[in-house]
Amino acid sequence: MNRPRSYTIAAVLIVLYNVISLMFELPNLLQGPGEISPGVEGPPVFLSIINFTLLILGLVSAYGVWQVQKWGVTLALIVAALGILTGIPAIIFAPFLALRVIGVIGVIWSAAIIVLLLRPRPNSITA
């Protein structure tokens, strides 16, 4: 198997992003709805569940990308696109600027993953 370097970087980025996000998302999911600071409501539970599902799918897709599988790349693209789409409300409706910045970083991260996955020509791949 001859893995393009961009796929290796993309797989590492996906794993890093998803593991870090899981560390923040898991307490939210276990804690349930509540205030993240006095007077400020946290994200709804369904959003946390969607995020959690996307993160798990992201890890699965990272394995597929690492193995240079077409399904892995496709799944990673879908998850990254959904990551951007779910990250936009977090940016727009974030109560603090710090949260908004974190959201922007997440969006840029996902965009970078998309670019890395679409960059290599498949003809350089011998799967």
Binding site: A80, L82, I84, L85, G87, I91, G103, V107, I108, S110
Partner: peptide, 10 residues
């Protein structure tokens, strides 16, 4: 769609 949303958010 994700691209347009990302540009707007950023």
């Amino acid at each position: 769609v994700a691209y347009a949303s990302a540009v707007y958010g950023i």
